[in-house]
Every structure is written in structure tokens, then in C-alpha cells.
Write a protein that binds this DNA or RNA. Structure first.
Length: 546
RNA sequence: GGCGUGUUCGUCCAGUGGUGAGGACACCGGAAUCUCAAUCCGGAAACACGGGUUCGAUCCCCGUACGCGCUACCA
């Protein structure tokens, strides 16, 4: 055991005692049962959809229990840090309306960046060292690699424990010698775990769990030769969650295996243990099997993917909530968003993220929005993703609103579901705007291979006699009336019976007008489109076929 | 390898010691139609496998397989 003086000399002289931090971060005054939750994203890349998923659960549980939810940036791995990641977190949470009560400069339990909490960690590392619950380890990378290799060769569990923990029981003299030589060291936790020992604990989602006790002398404070002396996740978790007075740790399932370590750390530090809830990870279909959504390979793993595509936030939230608590997926959206999430109802198997399902939900959601709302949301999205669309929509607001009443709107029983995300707007509705529309000529392949001369004659005839009629049936008769004259069968059956005698049927003829008006072989109701466009624009577009 | 954890239609979820195992999305077929969307009707589709316990197991127990995770001075 090291002398207290030797231990203290390793730390800044003015380093506070634990009481100082305990006083600075007093227990929160909260109602019984209030849950204080936190999300600890690591700024090593964009926010993962799984992070949003857990954050949503954190937010919900704390809100409904009268607690608090805080965001703590876990930037202890400075080498892997990615610039701009923190800003992206902010945008992502804002977009989905999942904002923490405390983060950055907001809150009494900060700083909320681990890289700014060095002194806090050092206080508790020193405390552990003073009590001989931790020790200095001078093992080199090579030594560590050698230990691992030998363990693997003899099929022993890998790790720094028992007789492999070469610095665990070194004499004070040996330690001092290394210190005098200026060798770098890490601080390791002196694990109290015994071989064969088991620990049980309760998980709020999975119930009683059991695990081998931890025997590894895990690193608690990273190398002494870096500028900032930062803790590992395990140690930061214990110190931060205790001091920030978090009482419910919701995190990914990959942490289950380290709970025994965390429990030992909490006990050694004299902290009250916290409640745990381990969430099943979001998965991705991979051929026949499935795997965890990967930041690397899967674009949909990034929250930015949903923002860029313009998925409406409530639809994504509804989808995510449905994955967490299956029953909520059966409820109408408003109700589902208002219903508190329950940890006990969370699934234990990792669900696949199903973009098709998300799109269906989004389509339903958008279908029930008013034209004004859709337009506002599209414009908001376009402001950062499609500048020309913003200009057009601003200039043509009335047209846009009229276009958004075509086969949708309050008086339509079964509104179209052709908008799932805001990036769908341009391909689906762009043709309404002259600025975004390109005229079609009579040889265009979208016309279905009808002889250009026939196309031209038909279009000319249609345009010359065109009337902007209000009645749909009458309007369509302007096409029907031209059928015989231009060699089209009155119905598909006739055409099928005698295909050589016609250029097509009413179907093919109507397509000519459709393609001329919309530039597409698929479109909403032709009459509605024509009325929205107005007579002048209809004639302009149809005459381009001539 | 060790440890942990999980496994109901393709997908997301319900469900029960005795059920025709239910819904939603997707898929297929049909109706309607000037195309698409929407809509309506219909269809196919699952309790991973093997042992127990039991009068009876999808459900309880034990194994096996497979998936996923941990086994870092990454979180």
C-alpha cells in the first residue's frame, strides 16, 4: 500500500475532497418515484438512431415520473472525437422534440461534458487510491498483449486479474521506482471479485439477471502521460451518475455484461446503486440474418438520414415508440404519443428497423394534415435541403395550396397517401409549378409509343376545343369525344379484341393528356389537375405535343 | 473459447396449460377506374429444434442450434 503522501503527490494540491462535490451537487428535491435519466452519447460520429431511441425513452420516463432528463457528452476518448458531432446531436434532438432538461450550459449538475470534469474524477480516483481500493499499474502495451496471448493459448478468460494482475500487489518501493523514473501509469480498480462468485441484479426491463462477478482490475483512470487525465466509461458512469443524482440508467443492452463491474465501483466509492434498464438494440436485416445497425454501413443508422429525407418527426416518434412498447403501435398517433412508455413493456429482442413501415406511418400522418400544415412543413424542410423549391413555393403559395387539395383535404374521404416525407413533395407535386415543369414533345417515350403524328393531331384537336369545365364527367368527355376520330378504341376491351385497328383505347388517349400535363404516366385525377393548373397552363402544356 | 442475453407469420407486436394462435405493415389475387395513390373484398403466411413435467404444452423445466452482446487505456 502506498503512503497517503505518495498518493496525494500524484494529484494537484488544490484538488477538492469528495465532500466538496457532494455539497456542490446535492440530492435533488423531487417527488417520490421521480426518475432522473440521462443519455451519454459519445461524439465519435453522427447520432445513431439507437441514441435517439434511448433518448426518447429517457425523456418520456423522466417527464412522466416528474424527474429530469439530462444529456451528458461522453468525450473521454479524445482520439476518436469527430468535429461537429455535438452540434449534430443538438440538431437531431431538436428536430425530434426530444430535448433534455440539462445539457451544456443549462443545469446545476454540470459541466455536462466529461472532458471538463477532470477534477471531479481525480478526487475520487485519489480517494480510491488512499483506501487502497485502486492501484497504479505500469504494465506496458506489450506486456498486456502478452498476457492476453498467453491466456488465449491456455484457454483462460482474458483480462487483468489474479496472477495476471502484475501490478496489483507490487511493493511501494517498486511503484516508487517507476514513479521516480517518470514512467506513465494507469490507475486500476482493485476488484473484490472472487473466482466462481456470482452476482444477481434487477433490470427494469428483463427482471432478475445473474452474472459472474467481475474479477478484472479494470482501468479507472487512463494513462498519466496525456494532457487531460480522463476516466474510462465505467468509472465516469459511477461518478457522474452519482453526482448528477441520476437514479435510472437506461442504456443499450451491450452494457449488461459490465453491470457487475459497475456495482463493485458504486460500492467501493460508497455510492448508492442506481436502477438499470437495458434496451435491446435496433437491428438491420442482412440477407437471412440480422445484425446491429451499423454506423458504417447503414445510412439509416444516422438520425441525419431521417432529417434529410424529411420524415415528419411525429411519425418517427410514433414508430420508435411502437418498437419500444408494441401496444402503442395499435393506438392512433396522438394517443400513442401521449401514452407514457413503460419499461416493463419494452421488448427484450432487438427489433429490425423497417423503413417501409415507417413510410406507411408517415404517409398516414401526412394524409391527415391540412394543406397549410403540409406546405409549412415542406417549406421548413426545403429551407435547408432544397433552395429552389423554397423560392417556388414562396412565389406560388396559392397554387401550392390548391395543388394540395387535389384528392386530399378535409372534404375527401380517402386522402391520397403520396407524401411520406418532405423530399417526396418535389417528385409528387413539382409538376404543378411551371418553374419546375419541363414541356413534353410528341415523340416522348412516356407517351407510350403512340405515333407522334397521332399525338400531335390529338393534342391539337383537344386544345382547340378545350373548355375548363367544372364537372368531371363532362370534362373527361373532351377526351372521349376525340377517340373515334383519332383512331382510339372506346374501351380497353375493344382495343384488345382488335389491337391492329386502333392506336390504343381511351386509356392510352388519356395518358397523352396526362403526360402532357404532368410529365408522368402516373398522376392524381386528371380533371382535378387540369382545374388546378388553369386553362392557360393546360393549353400551353397540351400544345407542346403539337 | 468463456460469460451473458435472446428466439410466435417476411417484419413489428398480441396471446393462452386445452384458441380456428389475433392484429398491423409488406406480399399475392379480386372489385372499381383514364394512370397512380387511396378505398373495399379475399388469400397465403409463424409458435427454432429435441427431450422432459402434465390427461394435455406455443405457454413450465432442461438441453441443442442459431442470432446478438461483452471479453479494450471504445463508449
Amino acid at each position: 500500500m502506498l503512503d497517503r503522501a505518495v498518493v496525494d503527490a500524484l494529484f494537484p494540491s488544490g484538488l477538492p475532497e469528495p465532500e466538496h462535490w457532494e455539497k456542490q451537487y446535492p440530492p435533488r428535491q423531487l417527488p417520490d418515484g421521480a426518475k432522473v435519466t440521462r443519455l451519454g452519447p459519445s461524439p465519435t460520429g453522427f447520432l445513431h438512431i439507437g441514441g435517439l431511441y434511448v433518448g426518447m425513452i429517457d425523456r418520456d420516463i423522466s417527464t412522466h415520473s416528474g424527474g429530469a432528463y439530462l444529456l451528458r457528452v461522453e468525450d473521454t476518448d479524445q482520439a476518436r472525437e469527430v468535429e461537429g458531432a455535438v452540434e449534430q446531436f443538438g440538431r437531431a434532438f431538436a428536430y425530434f422534440g426530444i430535448q433534455p432538461d440539462e445539457e451544456g450550459e443549462r443545469g446545476d449538475y454540470g459541466p455536462y461534458f466529461q472532458s471538463q470534469r477532470e477534477a471531479v474524477y481525480l478526487t475520487y480516483v485519489r480517494e480510491l487510491l488512499r483506501q487502497d481500493k485502486a492501484y497504479l499499474c505500469f504494465a506496458t502495451k506489450d506486456e498486456l498483449a502478452d498476457i492476453t496471448a498467453r491466456q488465449q493459448a491456455t484457454k483462460l478468460p482474458t483480462g487483468y486479474y489474479g496472477r495476471w494482475a502484475i501490478w496489483r500487489d507490487k511493493s511501494a518501493e517498486e511503484v516508487q521506482a517507476k514513479l521516480d523514473a517518470g514512467e506513465p501509469y494507469v490507475v486500476r480498480f482493485r476488484s473484490p471479485g472472487k473466482a466462481g462468485e456470482r452476482v444477481g441484479f434487477v433490470d427494469a426491463i428483463r427482471g432478475q439477471l445473474e452474472h459472474e462477478a467481475n474479477r478484472n482490475d479494470v482501468v479507472v483512470l487512463k494513462a498519466s502521460d496525456s494532457e487531460l487525465r480522463l476516466p474510462t466509461y465505467h468509472f465516469a458512469h459511477a461518478v457522474d451518475d452519482h453526482l448528477m443524482r441520476v437514479n435510472l440508467v437506461i442504456r443499450g443492452e451491450e452494457w449488461i455484461s459490465s453491470v457487475p463491474t459497475h456495482l463493485q465501483l458504486f460500492d467501493a466509492l460508497g455510492f448508492e446503486r442506481v436502477e438499470y434498464a437495458h434496451i435491446a438494440p435496433l437491428m438491420k436485416q442482412q440477407g437471412g440474418s440480422r445484425r446491429k445497425l451499423s454506423k458504417r454501413k447503414d445510412p439509416e443508422a444516422s438520425v441525419d438520414f431521417y432529417i434529410e429525407a424529411g420524415f415528419p418527426a411525429p411519425a418517427v416518434q410514433y414508430y420508435l415508440r411502437g418498437l419500444a412498447n408494441g401496444r402503442l403501435a395499435e393506438l392512433p398517433l396522438d394517443e400513442a404519443l401521449a401514452t407514457p412508455l413503460s419499461l416493463g413493456d419494452c421488448g427484450v429482442a432487438g427489433p429490425l428497423v423497417d423503413l417501409v413501415k415507417l413510410e406507411d406511418i408517415a404517409a398516414d400522418y401526412v394524409a391527415n394534415l391540412s394543406g397549410e400544415d403540409i406546405l409549412a412543413l415542406v417549406q421548413e424542410w426545403a429551407a435547408t435541403h432544397d433552395a429552389t423549391l423554397v423560392d417556388v413555393l414562396t412565389a406560388e403559395r396559392d397554387l401550392a395550396l390548391r395543388a394540395l387539395t387535389v384528392e386530399r383535404g378535409p372534404e375527401v374521404a380517402n386522402p391520397r397517401k403520396d407524401l411520406r416525407k418532405w423530399s417526396d413533395f418535389r417528385p409528387a407535386y413539382g409538376f404543378f409549378f411551371a418553374q419546375l415543369f419541363e414541356l413534353v414533345d410528341n415523340g416522348d417515350e412516356r407517351l407510350g409509343g403512340v405515333d407522334p403524328k397521332v399525338v400531335s393531331a390529338f393534342a391539337a384537336d383537344f386544345a382547340d376545343n378545350y373548355a375548363d369545365l367544372e364537372d368531371g364527367g363532362e370534362w373527361f368527355n373532351q377526351i372521349r369525344g376525340l377517340l373515334e376520330k383519332h383512331g382510339f378504341a372506346p374501351n380497353p376491351k375493344e382495343y384488345k379484341k382488335n389491337p391492329d385497328a386502333f392506336h390504343g383505347s381511351v386509356r392510352e388517349a388519356a395518358q397523352l393528356i396526362r403526360v402532357a400535363l404532368t410529365g408522368s404516366t402516373k398522376s392524381p385525377d386528371l380533371h382535378a389537375v387540369a382545374r388546378t393548373l388553369g386553362q392557360d397552363e393546360v393549353l400551353r402544356r397540351v400544345r407542346s405535343l403539337v
